[in-house]
Design a protein around this nucleic acid. Structure first.
Lengths: 344, 344
DNA sequence: TTTAGCACTCTCGGTCTTAGAGTGCTAAAA
DNA sequence: TTTTAGCACTCTAAGACCGAGAGTGCTAAA
């Protein structure tokens, strides 16, 4: 059975209402609040149909109806009211990009904070995949008599620095020479390209700088390990979730927070659900990972000319203000892409 | 009335038990579990005295006793069992400092994580006060044809970097000259010393580099503002709090999490309660800030030769495993001080 | 001074009950 | 044929009630 016009209106009303109130909705409520022009009894019949078709479910026999995941899916695919952001929201978002933030990471973090603030859901940001990240610049510079800084800049504009010891007999021009050698050998290489073998080759090339180079190599390699470990998942606004009735049960809240700490799970979930340059909605059990099955995730994959910059994910109860979240996410990623392509 | 030997033993038993169980303790339980050699009736009398003296209180008439803040204070001041860390704990702590972490900030963050893991309380770290922080090194370096990096290193070893644009006509030696000028003029200055006036002076000194310098100045000033805003308060392990019966009420949990987000409050609390090179315990209502009054905070102020490196704070319910927390904190700060003085 | 005994108090966890919301079905109305 | 009014039925949430259990304070005896 296809959904006719009237069924769709009723479904939309139920989902809208449930998203707003988190309470099961009965036929009478719909008749009263949404003016569909038919009696509760008729609505009841329609609701029974919708339930049979799998779009609704009942917590218990004598309760109202609640949207099922299939219901949400239909809603998201066909019924999303296009939500215009109001002036305040627009302004709040624009503000992030007005500020002179030159570093990509900071910009993204700030964007995540603002998204959480506007949506009241948890925002997760995840850096680009290691495989597509390569070194753009590597340099050793002296900051004190026997202390130096190893600087690495990737194609995504992320910068990492490590303090290193510089042996006594090294002059500034030695450092410059080492920098040059590292640069010519390593720029353009992805982190996974840089293996011990490659290091050994370079070492051979400049056998005279042996000792320092060894240290640099070690540090560099360690840093790689760090970058891979540091499962770059950052979340903000998690405490907001405690506001929702879905998390009133402390057990549920605890599960949510411990989930957030399992970065590998989160990474897998975001990666698997997001597609390049689109906003994707994953509802409850559509997520392969069971821990996430009573949450929804809206992901936006930010990329510029095939260059994957990272993923924003917004996590909330399945009863999520989808249209609002999507609008905000669209707006933010738009600005972000614009800013990055012009400024950075 | 002074506390005699027997009262003290009873008080200690009650507090130990309450810290372990979070349940009010009755006279019979004490007689059974702790072998003081007197009957419940006698214990009852003593407990009534202790209550009258303000060391205990009763949730309701027919419940057992619960320690009051005054009771905890007495316990912390006079009764703390000196707790030896076991091998596992020792090893876990040592491990942080074995790893080659060259940067102070990373080291401290890692230490905080370990403290949270071992204690199951929330650990807060707070950077040194801005007033005591000064520039040790400042430098502009090129990372791409028209992109440079402004590097600033402070006396605490913290490093901040900002990507800047480099105008076309600037050669590498220009950058070195600018770096030198900035260095001679700004190193040793605290962030608050560096005013616009000072910037103007430097600008005058090298009028020919005018334009770039202007940008650098702006960026530098902005960075200062950031550093001051970014109320450097970082907390870890907050989700652990949901395990405790004190936070089973979602309302309480929400309060706690929103408290954690009020960095200014936290900063004030940590600053006011911590003393140089000591571990301080602040119990419940001893804290001037009402939001913190049913929590306890143990703070450790880490400093080396008057140089204030920052504060660790451990927050938990007033029913906190004080001796354990103190031992762990002692151990960690010890190692930290040692590591910093030798390595960094 | 300590302790046994006892009446008393308060909470916590069940059971019971009722009001309310909502349903599905049937039969009448449109 | 479709819609709707009416009604019996179901289920939950909230309140009332009750008894067990833990703990107290007091009194009087050891």
């Amino acid at each position: 059975m296809m959904l006719d016009e009237r069924k769709i209106r009723i479904l939309a009303a139920i989902i809208d209402d449930y998203i707003a109130t988190a309470e099961p909705i009965g036929s009478r409520t719909i008749a009263r609040k949404y003016h569909i022009g038919i009696s509760p009894a008729t609505i009841r019949n329609e609701m029974a149909d919708l339930e049979e078709l799998g779009y609704l479910s009942q917590p218990h026999t004598s309760a109202g109806r609640v949207p099922s995941h299939k219901g949400y899916r239909f809603y998201v695919d066909f019924l999303l009211p296009s939500k215009k952001l109001d002036d305040f929201e627009q302004a709040t978002i624009r503000q992030i990009f007005r500020r002179r933030i030159n570093e990509f990471e900071e910009l993204v973090k700030e964007a995540a904070r603002v998204i959480s603030k506007l949506t009241s859901y948890t925002t997760i940001i995840m850096g680009p995949q290691m495989e597509t990240m390569f070194l753009k610049h590597i340099q050793v510079t002296r900051i004190e008599e026997f202390k130096g800084l190893l600087l690495m800049v990737t194609n995504y504009g992320t910068i990492s620095h490590h303090i290193i010891d510089i042996p006594q007999n090294f002059s500034d021009s030695d450092l410059i020479r080492i920098s040059n050698i590292l640069n010519t050998n390593l720029t353009g290489k992805t982190f996974s390209d840089i293996t011990n073998d490659m290091m050994d080759e370079i070492k051979n090339e400049i056998i005279e700088y042996d000792k320092t180079l060894n240290i640099l190599m070690e540090i560099l390699l360690e840093n790689l390990a760090d970058a891979q470990d540091n499962s770059q998942v950052i979340s903000t606004g998690s405490s907001k979730m405690l506001e929702y009735p879905e998390f009133q049960d402390v057990e549920k809240a605890k599960n949510f927070f411990s989930l957030l700490e399992q970065h590998d799970l989160i990474m897998k979930a975001l990666r698997s659900s997001s597609k390049p340059n689109t906003i994707t909605v994953t509802i409850g059990n559509e997520n392969p990972c069971i821990e996430l099955q009573d949450l929804s995730i809206v992901t936006a994959n930010v990329s510029i000319d095939e260059k994957d910059l990272g993923i924003f994910g917004i996590m909330g109860p399945t009863r999520m203000k989808y249209s609002r979240v999507i609008s905000i996410l669209e707006q933010v990623t738009d600005y972000l892409v614009k800013t990055v392509s012009t400024k950075l």
